[in-house]
Design a binder for these strands. Sequence first.
DNA 1: TCATTTGCCTAAGGGCTTTAGGTAGATGCA
DNA 2: TGCATCTACCTAAAGCCCTTAGGCAAATGA
Lengths: 189, 189
Amino acid sequence: MARVGLTTERLVRAGADLADEVGFDQVTVSALARRFDVKVASLYSHVKNSQDLKTKIALLALEELADRAADALAGRAGKDALTAFANVYRDYAREHPGRYAAAQFRLDPEAAAASAGGRHAQMTRAILRGYDLTEPDQTHAVRLLGSVFHGYVSLELGGSFSHSAPGTQETWSRILDALDATLRNWPAP
Amino acid sequence: MARVGLTTERLVRAGADLADEVGFDQVTVSALARRFDVKVASLYSHVKNSQDLKTKIALLALEELADRAADALAGRAGKDALTAFANVYRDYAREHPGRYAAAQFRLDPEAAAASAGGRHAQMTRAILRGYDLTEPDQTHAVRLLGSVFHGYVSLELGGSFSHSAPGTQETWSRILDALDATLRNWPAP
DNA sequence: TCATTTGCCTAAGGGCTTTAGGTAGATGCA
DNA sequence: TGCATCTACCTAAAGCCCTTAGGCAAATGA
């Protein structure tokens, strides 16, 4: 009975990797046990249950994403910041589709409060400092940015854009141009 | 052994209702059998398997959504059409969250080809006739609209906007204003 | 009325989840 | 170093979901 050295940390990280390989909703306690060549029941000392495992993977993804975004935002402002921030989301989703899907996992209120969700909102607001928006327009704009980034990334990832010209990189650039223009010239009600 | 009168049609419709009540990923062959007070195996004469059931629910949702959109678009143009079209998506998602989630279900290429997906794309293009866009900008704009609508609706449905002022109706209107302005004044590369 | 079709059933194998309780390897103290 | 304790991983078992194979009885139609 060699001990493998399971920890919650290692399980969550391996779960995230597994998600990237086979999809977040194929992440299962059983599959994870197989990956460590260990019996399923053994995982239940480190993770409460399947839901808990998925929640922890989601929290990991949200942290990683927030860390990358913070890095990208350092020293940038205006459209430069907007573009860098947007690219973090898109690139993360392409490199880590399973983790990105995990970040969309519906968290219970307690987990949501402890998540990096707040950092994401704060950073989005920080970007808008480069544009002249006051409340409540700033909140509207935060929501617009969230919608476009999440919507674009999940449609592209789902393949909705893959069967028509022109390429998605071109569209992405033009959408960021359009967003920048919209923010610089936010319409009055 | 009274016969209940199962048909693929009835199963799919009931599956869609079930999705709206308990969530699309809680839709299961077993749950559906329980709903008809019938043994699980009985469903397999009408539906190939679980994946097939979900695909058929997705196709139903896409059709319903396209029908509503076509209705809403009739006799409208410009911003009027844009708003009506956008509201169809948002309202459908709020009335039928499970069906809306189903419409996001990853279809295999064959099912995708037979789906109402093409109608959606066509209608989005029709809206853009009210704005002065030529290819490839039109395609970029189609993708922007898809991203915003899908992104906003899924974030709102997921509760991302529910714990901050101002209300989401206000944001939604302002986002549509902003989109309209963007389309009227599409930035050159 | 009787043959055929077919709608729903029983039976059974296999997978994932979760809990309860056992055993052996690691840890720490004398 | 030896022994007690801890704990990491295990076996066992129950419950639920998916799927296939084969059977019986209700509907259909000649």
